[in-house]
Design a protein around this nucleic acid. Structure first.
Length: 768
DNA sequence: GAGCACTGC
């Protein structure tokens, strides 16, 4: 029996609300042509109550103006608060209008986080009555839940779309791109906004929707002014009111004030859970201990009016089982009709955006968070406790009104809120090292990095630092053009130093080993999704576990796996042992190693291996009788990527001086080197209680001159202790008397310059 | 003898 197709008569981008609602209410699913399930209608009733649903007509008038106005509204700015339903509904509205399924195109909606992409895709698949991964799917790193030819609505991380833009700058596969949570201003979203603003000139059929919270909308509207400003589409949120309280005077000690406020709420306010924002692990654990002591004290003295309390810490490096505790119910009253228990969650910023916890009625906001800052002068990213922005404060307060009216206690004065807090948190692009981003942009075809149309332009010095690094790595030539090597480097989801050493590693017969080291270094920070929709495994910043009560045992275990030549080799050793033990979690556990970070490294390794195969980079290893020689090759390959991160020992006090930047640094206590070698290469420079270098390997200075002559150009090297040390090394190599030695140094200076010239012309050096 | 805000490819 032939029936009319539910979308019969729909003209792409000229559909009407009546047509769409008709199709939605119909018996037959327009995308599968199967009967709608009873569940579908149930969900549809709930969808109809969302604020955004009432504005469908307004939306279609904006995206589908009369045909003559077709190109006019190519970009739309959409403003919607929490609870408006924009993330789930707008992409579906767009599907009915674009009809991507008829043209083999996608409607894409980006999210800053993996979990959000997964869980929203699942929700929308249910709403559309289709299986997840068919018509509706998601695409995130390590997981592509789409079916080519079938999927037409795709949720994805912003980083994933940026990767695609590198290969296909015209993003031909997409009919509409929706950038959700644009106000969060992630690095990837910012770069995408710049690329898309440029792309719409070329692709007149492409539509862009920028979805954001209120405060930023005008900025985006101004940025996306092409002839005239992009239109604004506003949707009200659906949250409960939150009363805001300020302190009368500034609080000298915000942790102490926060604890006092939590206890005050517990004593005096109605039942309801409390969320307290602090800045980091140590602060949080400390506050939890103190709250617990005070609350137990209250309970002991006054169990008639005060109920029990459970205090739960929340930060990303907490093991997943402990994170789950935030969903536990509050403690039971002491007696059947005694005062009710209360749950207090003490959290980092993770609860501001990444996680929502239902049942929170009170928020305590001291007004601080840790933020990453990049200092291009010394090329260091550091974490600093910083006052939050007004937007952040508003977001935090909103967390109290998700289930019923709430209260937010700000531990600063109203005057400070008005006068001292910045409107917005500085976007990530202004606070980051941009080496990776610059390489991605160049690969995506952006010619002039300095004049690129950024929403907020980064400091010229940051761009210069990135260009300089990429030039020394030979990813960009002297005119800033992408070299074939740079093009290969951009294919890897790695820092440029790492992709460089991976690409040159076959020349040192150790690409197997470098692949492992790179995977360990980058897997240490990557994510692993645990269970959908709830919570993710946190970042695993350290592979070494050190439980408080077994520190000694943990240290001994670490000692047994340590390779004295360097931490990079230790990482290699750990991974190899893990493989020799057949990925046994017990082996990891018995050796005080995080099994999660190892399996993550395994994941990353498999992905990088696929890229290597595609680029035809040989996977080689060489067995020497003498392991030291093998390690030497690996260390040489490390030098090819990290020659700019080298330090030289000064004096006998364990001080090191970084090459060229002349920063005084020390070996991090976690470093496994058994001596203090004269020359070391490091993976990370961290600024904490002191400047430290972390993940350190001993190198030989002659390798610097051999392998990276254009950076270690003696003739052009600024005078200083490092240069003198290099010269001493050259002198020793010649083995001559002082006078002859001096001549040799002069000659080697000259030789280095010549080498460099020759190098630029023809020499097939691994690092050029 | 120290530490790790949060994401992402």
């Amino acid at each position: 029996m032939a029936t009319k197709h539910p979308l019969f008569g729909f003209i792409p981008r000229q559909v009407t609300t009546k047509e769409v609602r008709g199709a939605m209410e119909g018996n037959e699913n327009p995308f599968t042509r199967l009967p709608h399930s009873p569940q579908y209608y149930k969900i549809l009733e709930a969808r109809k109550k969302l604020p955004v649903f009432a504005q469908m007509d307004e939306f279609y008038k904006m995206v589908s103006p009369a045909p003559s106005l077709f190109t006019k509204h190519q970009i739309i700015i959409m403003v919607g608060e929490t609870g408006s339903g924009k993330t789930t509904q707008i992409p579906q509205f767009v599907v009915y209008s674009d009809m991507p399924q008829t043209k083999k195109k996608y409607v894409a909606c980006t999210q800053p986080r993996r979990v959000a992409a997964m869980s929203v895709a699942k929700r929308v698949a249910d709403e559309m009555d289709v299986p997840l991964g068919k018509q509706v799917g998601y695409s995130i790193r390590f997981e592509d839940m789409t079916e080519p030819g079938t999927t037409f609505l795709k949720y994805m991380t912003d980083g994933m779309l940026l990767r695609e833009a590198m290969h296909d700058p015209d993003l031909e596969r997409y009919s509409t791109i929706i950038l959700d949570e644009a106000h969060e201003r992630t690095l990837a979203t910012d770069i995408l906004m710049g690329l898309l603003k440029n792309l719409v000139k070329k692709r007149k059929d492409l539509k862009i929707i920028i979805m954001s919270a209120t405060l930023d909308a005008l900025k985006f509207q101004k940025y996306f002014t092409i002839g005239e400003p992009a239109p604004l589409f506003k949707v009200p949120g659906r949250t409960h009111p939150v009363e805001i309280y300020y302190t009368q005077e500034p609080e000298p000690d915000y942790v102490e004030a926060a604890i006092r406020t939590v206890l005050m709420i517990h004593r005096a306010e109605d039942p309801g859970d409390i969320l307290l924002f602090l800045t980091g692990e140590e602060e949080i654990e400390d506050a939890c201990r103190k709250i617990k002591i005070e609350a137990d004290d209250l309970l002991a003295n006054d169990s008639q009016t005060v109920g029990p309390i459970s205090c739960i810490p929340l930060y990303s490096s907490l093991p997943p089982q402990q994170q789950q505790r935030i969903f536990d119910p509050p403690p039971q009253p002491r007696s059947p009709d005694g005062p009710p228990g209360r749950k207090v969650i003490v959290s980092t910023n993770i609860a501001e955006t990444s996680l929502t916890i239902d049942g929170i009625v009170y928020v305590v906001d001291p007004g601080f968070s840790k933020q990453k800052l990049y200092n291009p002068r010394i090329r260091v990213e550091s974490l600093l406790v910083t006052p939050i922005s007004k937007a952040s404060a508003q977001q935090r307060a909103g967390r109290a009104g998700r289930t019923r009216p709430g209260k937010c206690f700000r531990l600063y004065t109203e005057k400070d809120f008005m006068k001292e807090l910045e409107e917005q948190t500085h976007p990530e692009i202004l606070r980051s090292n941009l080496a990776n981003t610059v390489l991605e942009l160049v690969k995506a075809g952006v010619k002039d990095l300095v004049r690129f149309d950024y929403v907020d332009a980064p400091a010229p010095e940051t761009l210069m630092r990135a260009l300089e690094l990429l030039n020394y790595l030979a990813a960009l030539d002297d005119d800033g053009n992408l070299t074939p090597l740079g093009s290969k480097m951009s294919e890897f989801p790695l820092d440029p130093q790492m992709s460089k050493m991976l690409i040159v590693s076959p020349e040192f017969n150790c690409s197997q080993e470098i692949l492992t080291i790179v995977s360990m270094l980058s897997g240490m920070f990557a994510l692993a999704a645990l269970s959908m929709g709830l919570i993710v495994c946190p970042t695993v910043p350290n592979i070494w576990l050190r439980p408080n009560n077994q520190r000694k045992e943990a240290d001994t275990a670490k000692q047994l796996l340590t390779v004295p030549d360097g931490d990079h080799l230790t990482l290699l050793n750990v991974f190899n042992e893990y493989q020799n033990n057949l990925h046994d979690r017990n082996w990891a556990w018995n050796n005080y190693i995080s099994a999660r970070s190892l399996s993550q490294a395994d994941n990353v390794r498999a992905q990088l291996l696929r890229v290597m195969e595609r680029l035809e980079i040989d996977l080689v290893t060489k067995s020497y009788k003498d392991q030291t020689r093998h390690y030497m090759d690996i260390r040489k390959a490390l030098v090819c990527g990290y020659f700019m991160q080298v330090a030289h020992k000064e004096g006998e006090k364990g001080n090191y001086l970084t090459v060229k930047d002349n920063q005084v640094v020390s070996l991090h206590p976690s470093c496994g080197l058994d001596t203090q070698p004269e020359w070391v290469l490091f993976n990370e420079f961290v600024l904490t209680t002191r400047p430290y270098i972390r993940t350190v390997t001993e190198i030989r200075p002659e390798w610097l001159l051999e392998l990276t002559a254009n950076y270690y150009d003696m003739a052009a090297f600024a005078d200083g202790e490092t240069k003198r040390a290099l010269q001493r090394m050259l002198k020793k190599q010649t083995g001559k008397s002082f006078k002859a030695g001096a001549a040799a140094v002069a000659a080697s200076d000259e030789k280095a310059t010549k080498e460099k010239r020759k190098d630029k012309l023809s020499r097939p050096s691994p690092c050029r």
